[in-house]
Design a protein around this nucleic acid. Sequence first.
DNA 1: ATATTCCTAGAACGACCGTACAAGAAATGA
DNA 2: TCATTTCTTGTACGGTCGTTCTAGGAATAT
Lengths: 192, 192
Amino acid sequence: MAGRPVNHQRRADLLDAAVDYAVEHGFAELSWRPVAGALGVSTTTLVHHFGTKEQMLEAILGRLRERTFAATSDAAGDRPGLAAAARAVWTRTSDPRQSAEFRLFFAVYGRALQAPRQFTEFLERVVADWMRSLVEAQGPDTDPATATRTATLVIATIRGLLLDQLTTGDRDRVQDAAETFLATLEHNPPGT
Amino acid sequence: MAGRPVNHQRRADLLDAAVDYAVEHGFAELSWRPVAGALGVSTTTLVHHFGTKEQMLEAILGRLRERTFAATSDAAGDRPGLAAAARAVWTRTSDPRQSAEFRLFFAVYGRALQAPRQFTEFLERVVADWMRSLVEAQGPDTDPATATRTATLVIATIRGLLLDQLTTGDRDRVQDAAETFLATLEHNPPGT
DNA sequence: ATATTCCTAGAACGACCGTACAAGAAATGA
DNA sequence: TCATTTCTTGTACGGTCGTTCTAGGAATAT
């Protein structure tokens, strides 16, 4: 009843490196051999730690979600109103230093829409997590229907604008539109 | 100096069928053999008409863009104001009967963001075409800066809401948010 | 020391991939 | 009819894919 203990840190390190690889090389080019080569290990090592390729993708997705959502929800969580939360989220998501990660985010998103069975958890959380966060930001006094409606609109607008910025790189135009939207949120608070 | 004449219709028919296959089976599963099998031809026939696989993807993309953008821009073109155009576009894009095509649209979109070299034309037009259409809808009297800003916002919001609807299938919530957005456009016209 | 378990690696399997080649059938103008 | 070009097919090649098997070193408890 002994044996070498499981090295959880090793798996975590490999996963982090795999996510880095995915961010840099794209979601469509994730196969055992290239990833293993970039990480300096054998494909068998990856198989040992992650099981099947599908399980590795799942692990990468989860880690990616941690990176992106956690970073933005932190910013939104400790702000009083919806407008401030929305502005904080937009500031973080539109940061060019995060563009590679969000490109991967939308690549996964698009693929998930065509293979919902394989990406069930991603699809269930990609909207719900943000919804919860943005509904909370509106406080307990806001009418639930209004809170839901507004949160839906904020998520959609931010993601649409982010898509535009990643596509065209036209930062000035997109930021201008975002500013208009955020100003509307601040000057005409919903539900009042 | 004779020979059998080139049958352009044949290529067009194959392309239409290929787009249908892509809509149904997803963008990631497009390889010669399955497509050829579904179309009842040999892989060599597809190669003959489309050249390389990359060229076939390009052809499919172009045809898909014709289907989606043309259908929606028709609706937007002959309406007087931006609000009416936006409502017409949203009505068409949020139609559940088109959900499969828009799933493919976002799958291609996400993939293009990670392989910009391969999908240059798609990325250049996916925003610009709609921008032009929505700026025109605002008429020549609208301040250009305002028109651009508003068009950017409308595109982003509609695409974000569409993403939400395709993800969650929560039609009531998304339509409710869309109605709020469209009502705002109608009651508070920008640039006035 | 020994048994046990984990970690890693290399080789090999069958399957699928994109593509090229050879060859026959079909459709045209001369 | 005949030469020419297009259309279609079957076959085959090299390559990559995910996965499995085998086996040897590394780290632990007894």
